[in-house]
Amino acid sequence: MAHAVISCLHANHAALEAVLADIDQQGIDTITCLGDLVGYGPQPNEVVELIRQRAIPTCQGCWDEDIIEGLNACDCSYPSQLAERRGHLAHQWTAEQLSEENKAFLASLPMSLRRDRLLFVHGSPNSQHEYLLPNMDAFAALERVETAGADTLFCGHTHHPYVRELRDGSIRVRVQEGVASGGPSVEREINLPVRRIINAGSVGEPRHGNTNATYVVHDEATDSVEIREVTYDVERTCRAIVESGLPAIFAWRLRHGFEYAERADDASHVCER
């Protein structure tokens, strides 16, 4: 059975409609959403309502969390003052627009979803704000999947779709315990299990070089993963950005395939707060 995983819709209604149509047309009826329904884009209520109407199981994204609980992203997740001010502006605008009912829906979303050995999260099993980038240290990446007790981890948040397989891992250690506990030094080697991270990319705010929406389809029968790119009516969303009173620069950035506000260089950074 094939199932689709979508993430980071970011209040882009045209993109979500196009992606759902692409999924429907393949006859896939299991969809999982990894959060960030809102943030930056012009149609937060429409997007939340479409997800609710289609009853798509969804976990909570960093934006969904922040809209409910007030800004949780620490300043260090923005690489510049400009990005931070734009992020805050988008946050404030979205918080004002969202209906109470839709806010309550976002607040009700779980941190993660699990189906057998498949785990679905927004950022990482540790936090909605942690980025699992494709070039992240391979051991650290494996640790995230392994500690969470999963074989395959589906995540989003980076807006960069990828499939990463971690295999043939081993670690050799020499362990020595203090005399207080007694015991000589022991060498041991552990073999690490094969694990996989699948990042679903972003429906509403691409950051992969062009303007297409991305998501993934996982076929459980063959265990294969397809990264899908979908064109949509970008201009419709750009017009809505300008009409809604959001900064016109957001429309310019979306139209050129740039993220609305840039990300910190050290994307693995998780604030200690």
Partner: peptide
Amino acid sequence: GQQFSIELTGGGIESQVRDLEGQRHQ
């Protein structure tokens, strides 16, 4: 509370990433 030392002495891991640009081994 324990006194111990664990030295990482060897080992490795293979990583394969596929994205819209293609495939990379590491």
